[in-house]
Design a protein around this nucleic acid. Structure first.
Ligand SMILES: [Mn+2]
Ligand SMILES: [Mn+2]
Ligand SMILES: [Zn+2]
Ligand SMILES: [Zn+2]
Lengths: 141, 141
DNA sequence: GTACTATTTGCAACTTATTTGCAAGTACAA
DNA sequence: TTGTACTTGCAAATAAGTTGCAAATAGTAC
């Protein structure tokens, strides 16, 4: 029995399994850091995937929940596969752009606390949390 | 004894008290929500402040610590006065863009937890946390 | 008040990220 | 194998923010 292929993953989200989409998926799988549209485009350039297609693909993956958009405050969008990685966040070096994951934001307690405080909100659908600082190599200099 | 004026605030940060800067400060004071560069520009348009000046002013205020930049995931930068508001965060309606403040992210514990988990990081300088959901009016429909 | 100078501003042009329109190409159900 | 709805590529358009530079001005020194 073959493990579910990327083509099946796409079809499970009612998307056709096209060459550009499979290439983008594969690129995202190979990288452990979040990727920008340009990072992805560079990774799939051998397949001659247009930049616009890269943008559209990432957007549709996001809508489908295949990728999660990450806010790294670099003036562009970053994405990583949603698969497997639940509620983790990122610590980012403001000097060299290194990124590491961490977990433990205690989402449920946070949401409860926030909803108790606010007057006009009744539900939370998602959240964004990132830490910015210096990686050890960068802080030694 | 007069309360410290905005002009003095600017001079305290070695900035000249110019008409555009005073206008931007005043606009930020009047609004309780974070403002984008366009929001600010609109608010000071009677003073004929150029858009570029608005951008430059907000940037210099940020560097001086007069404003704090807020990430609302709307593809542009938002700012609010730093003054007084310590470590609070925002809950944002994904439907109508309403924003409310909340506090209680337990920053110190979070940083400690994150630094214990990561291998390559030694310090955290700032963080970003926001919740996204539906405000009560928007969820009733 | 007047003059001086370093800052700051406005305007035009530029860059970068992302979006849109549309004709041509292709996955896949039949 | 065919038909068609979904996708793609290319060109052009937006949108946010930046840069260069000459003209304007705040703060300081007479
Ligand atoms: Mn991650
Ligand atoms: Mn706030
Ligand atoms: Zn670093
Ligand atoms: Zn709402």
């Amino acid at each position: 029995m073959p493990t579910t292929s990327d083509a099946d993953l796409l079809r499970a989200h009612e998307m056709r399994a096209t060459t550009p989409r499979l290439a983008v998926l594969s690129a995202l799988r190979k990288t452990k850091y979040p990727m920008s549209a340009h990072d992805v485009a560079k990774a799939v350039r051998t397949k001659k995937v247009d930049m616009v297609t890269t943008y559209r693909t990432l957007e549709s993956f996001k809508t489908a929940g295949i990728v999660t958009q990450v806010e790294l405050q670099r003036g562009r969008a970053y994405y990583e596969l949603s698969e497997g990685r639940k509620d983790h966040h990122h610590i980012v070096c403001i000097n060299c752009d290194t990124v590491e994951d961490f977990t433990g934001c205690d989402y449920d307690a946070l949401v409860k606390k926030a909803l108790r405080q606010t007057v006009g909100f009744s539900s939370v659908t998602h959240h964004s949390l990132e830490l910015f600082g210096m990686c050890t190599p960068c802080s030694k200099k």
